[in-house]
Design a protein around this nucleic acid. Structure first.
Length: 847
RNA sequence: GCCCGCGUGGUGGAAUGGUAGACACAGGGGACUUAAAAUCCCUAGGCAGGAAUGCCGUGCCGGUUCGAAUCCGGCCGCGGGUACCA
């Protein structure tokens, strides 16, 4: 008998599929289509276990759906723009494009070895001018439809490297390379008007029945629709033009608990006051040293500066409140000014305690007295509370009722207006970097900002750039900026900002439907292939990537690039868990962290130098932390089928998995065993016993494995296949039955271990490729059990069991249960308090 | 900080209101073998016990229910996101 040799059989079947064009997607109007897509990878150069897991899952779905008679589209491409290529350019003196395309080539060969059912004829990289040219064309369409605009926004500025930093490049408020304290700098930037779609993006979530609830919830919270009151405090002796301060609050019912007004350091009033107040100016400067990330802002110690100015409370002109400039108030949200109610907001509470401001409860628990608070009292808005400083509505009411009553009161008394606001901000897409899609606009002294002519697209990146100093090479390129104004023909300058890489990944799924098309999409192809029936990717993309893609689908539809049905481009979403791994870290001479690949570490020490590494517990595998594992070695040792089987077994797909080398061996052993059993069966002859049992096991396996795949429970499908393999191996059934059972096993395994399955299929005389064979169907009649074992509980604890015919009437089951030895003993002659019989499941005797 | 998840034997996990630990890994014992590898068989949550069996047990505390890993409330720990990592 031949050995199980993945190295021989895997390339053989990969060639067979390629020659037959098995995975080339064909638009066939006679067949139902199925578009399965995994989030495309960043071409780091190395496939890691997260990729293997992600793409194997998609492959299982793609192969399964093909065998169910669908015309399957399963494409692959590269999310190829981004920071790492520029970092490589600086570190290794290699052009970002060369680095990226080299990585694509090497990753593609690693992909090939996995035997994925991908249609490579549709491959593209987002850094291909053919792709980003179409993106530029759409940007111009978006401009025409008013979906793009410019405004000022702050960035992290490294004053030493003279460059803009990503949030990731800021460590402890310092630039990662220069170590210089980062400053906030305001630049004119490009924005997409995603906020025009806030309401729609929110409401449409309700229709996404096949998205995980957690993702929809995260998006809902991110969009952050709130109803509140906008009103103005009148100021006392404020500089000219600041007679009033507009504030927005979601808790107008707590107005009588107000003890201060807070404004952002970027608020116009703060800017006006700091001119004549050096101390305030110093405070604002301090605030502006903070990075731009929300996380950093919120985690920082809450600080304020008393401007000395006062406002009058809208209900009582004698009641004055101080105005503080506070570091935790965002200019981007609401009006950049708030009133603080320390009794019912923990952040305000801490602020008031620190600056010795009054803390007056507006409401208490319904049965509590109005006593001093040790912390803010923040009940759910749906909970009824007793108002002790209320001004509208009942004394006892819920927060929701009180807010509505407060808004009504303020509106009818001319104090303010009820307004709806969204937390979602417009999408800033400008990046001051080289390796991205150039924004196709031109700055003309006479005509202003003008879109490039479409016939001049793509606006290609220049190749002759260098990275010997930080900053944007496009900015300092000697000639690239020079061009003619598309409107008046005079000399003008190109925009040097490039686009956020999220733009690239917001429409690639649409491009896959017609990747060579001279327009962004082809209407016929998009109509046939859209939407993505199953999208699979990491939960880390739950908000930004998916929200941006939903926006893009709408914008593309407005511009005629997608059919109306594609406004929600992903019918079903599955978020796989991450593959995690320990991080190995040392420190450089400046005490900054240096990360090391697992392959460079042995027994907690660097192989090269013996230096001890600090081990940081499991975290998401990331290129920057270098805690990645190379699956190529597993594939070359055990074969792709083993790697695929391994990543599908054990861990539920949605859960994180810690990568471990143990288990690959076990997967290999199992596949070898299946191979051996198949070979035994291939040469077996004659009759046997227990054919019916084996057939029942077969139909059960068909049913269970199919259910597992349908419900994304691949690990349970694998477990059922282990059980079925055990049953088949032990079976004494006749040769014909065993052959049939083994061929079904090969089919059930084929989405997971396609090479081995083809080999067994061919060995046992299967017709054609197993990849083209129709999925087996379970015979329902073979799934029914005649008798069932019912556990008997006494007071909810299992004490006994009884075997009964499946359809025994409830009364007889009750009789049998009461006659059970354990029950008789426990009852001790008495009668049960209650007797619960759940047919087919359980009997519970309550004593 | 805020939003969203997750937590079950030595390990990965199964069970999503009904027999907790399926299926595997590592472990222990045995068969085959001159021996080893490979393979096959048995065993296996913890504690007590010779066994029958009993008690405990799904991060912690409390609640709902005839019955809770599962539902609810409060904590603890870990992870993801936090708008320029992708």
């Amino acid at each position: 008998m031949s050995r199980f040799e993945p190295r021989e059989i895997e390339p053989k079947w990969q060639s067979a599929w390629e020659e037959a064009g098995t995975f080339t997607a064909v638009r066939d109007e006679a067949k139902p289509k199925y578009y399965v897509l995994e989030m495309f990878p960043y071409p780091s150069g190395n496939l890691h276990m997260g990729h293997v897991r992600n793409y194997t899952m998609g492959d299982v779905v793609a192969r399964y759906k093909a065998s169910k008679g669908f015309s399957v589209l399963h494409p692959m491409g590269w999310d190829a723009f981004g920071l790492p290529a520029e970092n490589a350019a600086m570190d290794k003196n290699i052009h970002p494009g060369a680095w990226t395309y080299q990585n694509i080539e090497s990753m593609k060969s690693q992909f090939a070895a996995l035997g994925l059912s991908l249609d490579w004829s549709r491959e593209f990289a987002t850094c291909d001018p053919e792709y980003y040219g179409q993106q530029q064309s759409m940007f111009i369409d978006f401009m025409e439809k008013g979906l793009v605009y410019r405004k000022n926004a702050v960035v992290n500025w490294d004053p030493v490297d003279m460059t803009v930093l990503a949030n990731e490049q800021v460590e402890d408020g310092k630039g990662w390379r220069s170590g210089a304290p980062v400053e906030r700098r305001e630049l004119t930037q490009w924005f997409f008007k995603i906020s025009d779609f806030s309401e729609e993006l929110l409401e449409a979530l309700d229709g996404l029945d096949n998205w995980p609830d957690k993702v929809k919830l995260m998006q809902r919270n991110w969009i952050g629709k709130s109803r509140g009151l906008q009103f103005a405090f009148s100021t006392i002796d404020a500089p000219e033009g600041f007679d009033r301060i507009e504030v927005y609050t979601t808790r107008p019912d707590t107005l009588n608990g107000a003890s201060f007004v807070g404004i952002s350091p970027d608020h116009p009033l703060a800017k006006a006051l700091e001119k004549d107040n050096p101390e305030l100016a110093a405070f604002c400067a301090e605030c502006r040293k903070m990075g731009t990330s929300e996380e950093e802002m919120e985690k920082a110690e809450k600080k304020g500066f008393d401007t000395g100015l006062r406002v009058r409370h809208p209900f009582d002109t004698a009641w004055e409140l101080p105005i503080y400039v506070a570091n935790f108030i965002l200019m981007d949200y609401g009006t950049g000014a708030i009133f603080g109610c320390p009794a019912h907001d923990q952040r305000d509470f801490e602020f008031a305690t620190k600056y010795d401001l009054p803390i007056n409860a507006v409401f208490t628990e319904t049965d509590a007295e109005d006593a001093p608070l040790a912390e803010a009292f923040v009940p759910a808005k749906t909970e009824a509370v007793k108002f002790v400083r209320g001004f509208a509505g009942e004394d006892v009411q819920t927060g929701e009722q009180a807010i509505d009553a407060a808004v009504d009161f303020c509106e009818s008394n001319g104090i303010g207006q009820g307004v709806t606001k969204f937390r979602l901000r417009d999408w800033g897409l400008s990046r001051q970097r080289y390796w991205g899609c150039p924004i196709p606009v031109i700055h003309c002294d006479d005509c202003g900002v003008v879109a490039e002519k479409k016939e001049n697209l793509p606006v290609k990146l220049p190749d002759d750039v260098n990275f010997d100093k930080p900053g944007n090479p496009l900015d300092r390129h000697p000639t690239w900026r020079n061009c003619e104004c598309p409107k008046c023909g005079k000399p003008a300058l190109r925009e040097t900002d490039t686009m956020d890489t999220f733009v690239d990944s917001s429409w690639y799924f649409a491009r896959f439907t017609s990747p060579g098309c001279a327009t962004p999409t082809d209407a016929t192809e998009a109509e046939y292939w859209m939407n993505v029936d199953q999208y699979i990717g990491g939960v880390e993309h739950a908000i930004l990537h998916l929200l941006y893609s939903r926006f893009f689908a709408r914008a593309m539809q407005i511009c005629g690039h997608l059919p109306p049905k594609a406004v929600e481009p992903f019918d079903a979403l599955f978020t796989q868990g991450m593959v995690t791994h320990e991080i190995y870290q040392t420190r450089d001479e400046n005490n900054r962290p240096v990360y090391h690949l697992p392959t460079d570490v042995e027994d907690g020490k660097l192989k090269a130098t013996g230096e001890a590494v600090e081990i940081i517990p499991s975290a998401k595998m990331s290129k920057s932390k270098k805690n990645v594992v190379d699956p190529v070695s597993i594939v070359s040792t055990y074969g792709a089928d083993t790697a695929r089987w391994f990543v599908l077994s054990d861990s539920p797909p949605e859960r994180d998995v810690e990568w471990t080398a143990a288990g690959a061996e076990a997967s290999y052993k199992h596949l070898s065993r299946v191979w051996r059993v198949a070979n035994d069966i291939a040469t077996a002859e004659g009759e046997g016993t227990g054919d019916d049992d084996l057939l029942r096991a077969m139909h059960k396996a068909i049913h269970d494995v199919t259910m597992g795949i349908e419900s994304f429970g691949f690990n349970t499908s694998v477990a059922k296949l282990y059980g079925y393999a055990n049953a088949l191996q032990k079976s004494k059934a006749g040769a014909a039955t065993k052959r049939q059972a083994m061929m079904v096993m090969a089919q059930l395994m084929s989405p997971m271990t396609p090479h081995l399955s083809e080999e067994i299929w061919a060995l046992l005389g299967g017709e054609g490729l197993i990849a083209n064979a129709p999925w087996p169907i379970a015979d329902e009649a073979m799934l029914v059990e005649d008798t069932v074992t019912m556990p008997i509980q006494i007071n909810g604890k299992r004490k006994s069991e009884v075997s009964i015919p499946k359809d025994m009437p409830k009364e007889e089951v009750e009789k049998l249960a009461l006659a059970d030895d354990a029950v008789v003993k426990a009852l001790n002659g008495g009668a049960p308090k209650k007797l619960i019989v759940v047919p087919g499941r359980i009997i519970n005797v309550v004593i």
